[in-house]
Design a protein around this nucleic acid. Structure first.
Lengths: 345, 345
DNA sequence: TATTAGCACTCACACGTTGAGAGTGCTAAT
DNA sequence: ATTAGCACTCTCAACGTGTGAGTGCTAATA
């Protein structure tokens, strides 16, 4: 379908457009990329590429601009061929400044997204480990005021999560200890998702209903596990505003709406962390299933606890994005986080 | 200096400009506000007001626009005269939807700022209770992995704060209990600020240095208290983009920079919570001492724990702000939060 | 047959002009 | 003290116009 020369021209056009947001013309290609072809020949090729849907013209007698399909081809081409990118500066910054933040994954992620957006000039995003896949280690219950219980949940992954739970019954610390030790023995080693389903199942069972201690325990535990999603971190909005792609107020509104609706982004990133692929993944513009996110591209990867992906980190930007650089960065970052988690254990 | 008529004209101009961001002319004032004066007379008054610095002309032969000094006069005028504002819809929404969120102040504040920005169309901001003024109740230390300690700090105000602290010595849970009970007996009843200074003082004392238990206790406690500021919540950026004041990309960049630099806003709000005034406070444009925040106005108030202000909540918007409505809203919100805190205890 | 030179054509954009409209300041009359 | 009248100023939108970049097509060329 596409011969080698067509591919090269297409990539040249995409690359040129990424460097500079002007529609690129045939003359420019011959000059800059020194094909041994005349502008006229390039024009013929461009015409074909447009027919096949890789390029489009903003208006007659302007140069060509890549379509989402064009970007897709470019990205796949990048990935299939070896390519290098000098991201050493970024790598050093990340490792040097952030390695010390070991015991608070939230701070680590928040700082990481800041660095990511600084270097990429796009939005840096990260999703903290999904509680669901973490493994229950033990729970501690502490009495707090009349009818509040402070719960502290430990997981094998080192995640610590606390939550104040309302209870409608008065309990002594001694009661709480008994409840905690019940939960500890019952749930040790399961992951939180399993526990959640276990709870649903058991809540209807008779023996639970009768035993007030156990039913209270279950109720508290359900509260603790109620929010399945982790935190999301987004930074670099100011960075994005500097891009020529956002010189238009409408565009700004679009991305700001997308940002404010964090649930969408969470769902999106969540999909990434479920797919167990071991690579940076790229979603381009209209490939995106979410209405508010068409027009943007997402480059993301998962980070792991052991061999299990537990969260994701990435970048959101315009479809006209420096994919090569960004993919490399996200790769670095995801590996880095995986490593820090591993070191911390 | 200003006679009653001048004042009325000034207020009319400010109000008209707030309703509609066009420079207001003399003819418009006579029509809309039905002074029994001709445009020519209004022009004379306007001329005087401009000389005194309350108004300015964007260019010759445009109408007048209030200066910051003009807004200031207007706001003071509002406050000194009784004025009403129908905010019942807002009041009901707030009380009905948020009253149930009692035991997590962070969620309460975050939801409140969302509502605030929805109704005001400006940025809603809130600062969670400053840990410094909270009263130490007790601390609990839990062993976590080899050399991590999970600390859970309880305050009289119901604030619970946990943090994972790295320690370079291996301790048993028994050791930790001893350390905790030392800290509990030592610091009970003090507020966290006092404790912080106490620690600094004691760290150099000899008896502390010798006793490893105590010195370890102090070190852990210092870690826990290390971040003096509470969380900040900001929402409504998309809301703000809809305002005519931000139809210009430069303006958007300005406010986005201001937002991203959260420390500035924290400092700002912090000032409010220190001044013990029992009213909504307004800072207009250039009155603001912070470089990045000139050009914006802040309407804020404190919420209290008992009679002590512990945090603040408010709104940030363009100087051309509907002060009357906004002040009323912030007033409602701050009282509401104070009430919820009181109920929760 | 693939490539290229040449040329007419199209379209966005920047620039200058122009006229309408809104609003002012000043002056003289009330 | 107030107001009518008027000349003046300035913005803004509308309109034409020319320039330049880039195209598609055709005919010549290797």
């Amino acid at each position: 379908m596409l011969n080698e020369r067509d591919k090269e021209v297409l990539c040249a056009i995409v690359q040129s457009y990424i460097n500079n947001p002007d529609p690129v013309g045939s003359r420019f290609i011959t000059k800059k990329y020194a094909f041994s072809l005349s502008p006229a020949s390039i024009r013929n090729i461009m015409f074909d590429l447009e027919e096949m849907g890789f390029l489009r013209q903003p208006h007659t007698s302007a140069g060509r601009v890549p379509t989402d399909k064009g970007y897709r081809f470019y990205v796949d081409y990048l990935c299939s061929h070896e390519h290098q990118c000098d991201n050493r500066a970024f790598f050093y910054e990340i490792t040097r400044e952030l390695e010390s933040i070991k015991n608070d994954i939230d701070i680590l992620l928040s700082e990481t997204t800041k660095r990511l957006s600084n270097f990429s000039h796009y939005l840096g995003v990260a999703l903290s480990p999904k509680a669901g896949s973490a493994t229950f280690n033990r729970i501690k219950l502490l009495k707090h005021r009349r009818n509040h219980v402070v719960t502290v949940l430990f997981t094998d992954e080192g995640l610590v999560r606390n939550k104040v739970v309302d209870v409608d019954f008065d309990l002594t610390q001694r009661d709480l200890n008994r409840i905690a030790s019940y939960l500890n023995s019952e749930f040790y080693g399961y992951n939180l998702n399993e526990i959640r389903t276990k709870i649903v199942r058991e809540m209807s069972e008779e023996k639970i209903l009768c035993d007030t201690l156990i039913s209270r325990a279950i109720r508290i535990c359900r509260e603790v596990l109620s929010s399945p999603y982790g935190n999301i971190f987004i930074s670099g909005f100011t960075e994005v505003l500097g891009l020529p792609d956002f010189s238009d107020v409408e565009k700004i509104k679009e991305i700001s709406r997308a940002m404010e609706d964090k649930h969408l982004i969470i769902k999106l990133l969540d999909k990434f962390s479920e797919s167990a692929k071991d690579e940076v993944q790229v979603v381009i513009g209209s490939e995106n299933s979410l209405a508010g996110m068409k027009g943007f591209s997402i480059v993301a990867a998962t980070y792991k606890e052991g061999s299990m992906p537990v969260g994701s980190v990435g970048v959101i930007g315009p479809t006209r994005m420096d994919y090569s650089k960004t993919i490399a960065m996200v790769d670095i970052v995801s590996r880095f986080i995986t490593k820090v988690i591993a070191d911390g254990s």
